[in-house]
Design a protein around this nucleic acid. Structure first.
Lengths: 329, 329
DNA sequence: GGGCGGCGATAGGAGACGGCTATCAATCCG
DNA sequence: CGGATTGATAGCCGTCTCCTATCGCCGCCC
């Protein structure tokens, strides 16, 4: 197969029709160029140049090959440029997976600031459940994901965005509404509604209820958070929602009310994760920082840890950390 | 600059997403492929693949580069094929220069046989004077030329086509027409018309006249062979024409007559020449042979040297027929 | 949880290829 | 007929790439 060096050599020769000049143009010696052209003729099995000591002419094949060689070299040049252009950070597309219990409450705070700050970055959102997100992330269909702890982060790097407490959400027409923060044990006496399989919020709710000593759950399973909310409003039970969701869903006139738990309140952390092996890690860290700023600026009902105010608390997700957060939540 | 080997390596990897398989496909070892891809990333200054020991993913740049690499490799492949296709003999175009005193008499014999025998060969004719033909040939604008001896063949190779005698052409209404072959000295008593500068026939005529001891020429110079013929028919003098031209121009009803000279009659050889350095020499030799056959088959008024007669002994038109025709004209 | 198998990266040595300088052979010029 | 110029050749050397052997890491499975 012809080499790039051979094509370059021949293209220069075809341009100049003079071995020494062409060699000089390429910064090589005349014999080197002679060799390269001869080698190209050898591999192609065709004479490309008619050589006399006084004249250099291209054969028919030579004309054709010269034309194509120029095209090929141009293509390689463009390839190199395109590689660098495509590799430029904050350009092109970034595919972000977001879990359904976070998306509707977080995205309004994020989208505008991200678009403003990175106008050349196309953000493509994928609202998927945690397990699906893990698959897509591993397969490269997603670059980033917004997940809730615990994250079993094999080969993933998680960057902390914010913490949110769980709140008790109950019907707005409750005859004996709680006053102020309630203890976790309150849950024991209530029918707790949970979502159906596949949503991480379900697992988190069950975990909290286990801590609180609950063993009776409402039999109905909600397929979506919207359904869950409607069920509560309909008086079928109570549920736990992250504070970011609770303040929205239990807004005045919604038919719902929400209250927080005594400290230490149960909660979860929301993190931005990417494959540890991604070469865009630095770019993604900057995105995480922008997201934190956006969350603060938007006044979301979250707890922002001190360290995240200063720097990105990004780290590879160890099993221990995940376990600790799980027991805390 | 990226090398072809690197692009091939990366393209294979992008296809398989597996170093060992890709290496096997290319018939190289896995470390070699690893190296090649790493080198490509180095020269491009961009990560192309996300490597984990368990997973290989393309980055954005990788996707783009893979696409372009495939295109470039395809282009190189096509280049190689095109080089060989273009180099195939008896295809494409061949540019042939023919001197004006030969073209109208030779080409009718040649064109059909050549087209029949080499249907894929496009013959492009250029009727030019000898000096111009030499320039065009040297510049590569012509591949072949049909010239008359003497040919100053610096860097040129001549292949003999045929010999033609000069004949004396005189007005058809001459009161004392010659009977049979005449001696060269006949020219001394006649006003000889010659062509203007630039035509090799002029030089050849002058040479013959010098041999014959002529010093008086008609003052008019013909710009073309057609003009020359008209001048003779008009009674302004006589001239010398090659037999191939004479038998055509002095045909019955033309107002001209022609007669041959005593042996050894003056004449010239018509040759097919090409640059000695041309890689198509073999192809051109075959063309020359075909031309000789065509000349024989067409019954042109020429002398064919022995070796070319034996080569086509079955092909009729032996030298007796030519001689008979010569005496007839 | 620990051994096992498969993966890509790394190390070191052998080989080839391409590069250079020096020189030759052929052609054009005066 | 000599000088100058051009492309080809010879011989040597550096570098680059390829190979085999091995490592470190990760996922799997008993």
């Amino acid at each position: 197969m012809p080499t790039v060096a051979q094509l370059r050599a021949f293209a220069a020769l075809a341009e100049r029709l003079h071995f020494r000049e062409a060699a000089a143009e390429l910064g090589m010696s005349q014999p080197a160029l002679s060799n390269a052209v001869a080698a190209l003729e050898e591999t192609l099995g065709t004479r490309l140049v008619e050589r006399t000591t006084r004249r250099v002419l291209l054969t028919r094949s030579g004309e054709e090959v010269a034309r194509r060689a120029r095209a090929v070299l141009g293509g390689i040049e463009e390839l190199a440029e395109a590689a660098q252009a495509t590799g430029r950070p904050f350009t092109g597309e970034v595919h972000i997976g977001v879990i359904p219990t976070v998306a509707p409450y977080l995205l309004p705070a994020l989208l505008r600031p991200l678009k403003t700050r990175y106008p050349d970055l196309g953000i493509v959102l994928h609202e998927q459940q945690t397990s699906r997100i893990h698959l897509s992330l591993a397969a490269g269909q997603l670059d980033l994901a917004v997940l809730a702890t615990p994250v079993d982060g094999l080969g993933l790097t998680a960057m902390h965005l914010y913490d949110e407490d769980f709140m008790l959400v109950y019907p707005g027409d409750d005859p004996r509404p709680p006053r102020g923060p309630v203890p976790l044990t309150t849950l024991r006496e209530l029918p707790v509604l949970v979502m159906e399989e596949g949503h991480c919020l379900r697992e988190q709710t069950l975990e909290v209820c286990h801590e609180a000593g609950v063993d009776g759950f409402a039999s109905t399973r909600a397929a979506s958070l919207a359904t869950l909310v409607q069920l509560v409003a309909g008086g079928l039970g109570v549920t736990l929602l992250p504070s970011t969701a609770a303040v929205i869903e239990a807004r005045p006139g919604s038919g719902l009310a929400a209250t927080s738990f005594h400290a230490p309140a149960p909660g979860r952390s929301i993190v931005l994760v990417h494959r540890t092996s991604s070469p865009r890690a630095q770019e993604f860290a900057a995105l995480a920082e922008t997201m934190r700023s956006a969350v603060r600026a938007h006044g979301m009902a979250v707890r922002l840890p001190e360290q995240s105010v200063t720097a990105a608390a990004s780290r590879s997700v160890p099993r221990q950390a995940a376990a600790a957060r799980r027991s805390r939540g």
